[in-house]
Design a protein around this nucleic acid. Structure first.
Length: 270
DNA sequence: TGACAGGTACATG
DNA sequence: CATGTACCTGTC
């Protein structure tokens, strides 16, 4: 267990920002997360965060995962003072950070996310992990499941996958798992490509259109100019940016603003 | 009861 | 290239 004081970071907001589906509240101010096959608990007490890991694990894994080296304060300062909507969004969800999630898992979880709601997305992801992931044990006897590898899913058929309640997305996931497993699309190369090329490459996968590709670019490949436009963001753009969103002005961090706007639209009382 | 949920594949003009 | 439509499934 280690503790840190972290600015521009709110684990509750991140958990509710819809970018990650295995970060869950387990008690008041307390969260669990499974990523890269590792289980972590995060607790907020007063102004400090407690992580159930060693300093070394924090430095090598979680600091990177939570994008701790990026100065979000500086980014928020760059937002136009006259941009009232974004300023409001920041005052509500300014503790959000863009996570650096595992690529394969992000591809699959965002294929699942289409025409879906967050509780059911999480349910589907957990079922995938329970059925086809690896079972791991913690020192206290508690168990958890890792996210299944591409090769594991690629070997399944639709019937074997049917326990996971994926609906029509099951077919997409099998095809995508096969494509990745056979290296028709290479995870390694995706990581080396720039934003535009990785987006194009991702869209070769069945079940990955513009929106899912943008999410993967932003939440896994950390192309922070990616700007996923879903029903919520479309509504925000229509209502508050009728003359167009100032992408040019916000070049280099537009994706972060997308997350603030998304969180604000989903959580504000209206 | 039917619409809706962080869309996409597939079929048409 | 732009537009239209069906689609699993749980929840309200």
């Amino acid at each position: 267990m280690i503790n840190k004081i972290i600015t521009d970071f709110d684990i509750q907001q991140i958990a509710d920002s819809g970018q990650c589906f295995r970060l869950n509240q387990i008690a008041s101010g307390k969260f669990s997360l499974i990523a890269s096959g590792i289980y972590l608990e995060i607790e907020k007490k007063d102004h400090e965060y407690y992580f159930t890991c060693s300093d070394e694990e924090y430095d090598t894994i979680w600091s990177f995962y939570f994008d701790m080296d990026t100065d979000y304060h500086e980014i928020k300062e760059k937002v136009d003072k006259e941009d009232t909507y974004m300023q409001n969004a920041i005052s509500h969800g300014g503790g959000i950070r863009i996570l650096r999630q595992e690529l394969w898992e992000t591809i699959i979880t965002f294929i699942i996310s289409q025409q879906n709601n967050i509780p059911r997305i999480k349910k589907c992801v957990e079922l995938l992990c329970q059925n086809f992931g690896e079972k791991r044990y913690l020192s206290n006897g508690q168990t958890y499941f890792t996210f299944p590898d591409p090769e594991v899913l690629a070997d399944l058929n639709l019937e074997e996958l049917s326990n996971c309640n994926l609906g029509y997305r099951g077919r997409y996931i099998l095809q995508t798992a096969k494509a990745i497993s056979q290296q028709d699309v290479s995870l390694r190369m995706l990581k080396e490509m720039d934003y535009e090329n990785s987006k194009k490459e991702l869209m070769k996968l069945c079940g990955v259109g513009i929106k899912v590709a943008e999410c993967v670019c932003l939440f896994a490949l950390h192309h922070i100019d990616a700007f996923p436009i879903d029903t919520h963001i479309q509504k925000v753009l229509d209502n508050y940016y009728p003359n167009g969103f100032p992408f040019q002005r916000y070049l280099g961090f537009a994706g972060i603003l997308q997350q603030y706007a998304f969180y604000y639209d989903v959580h504000k009382i209206s």
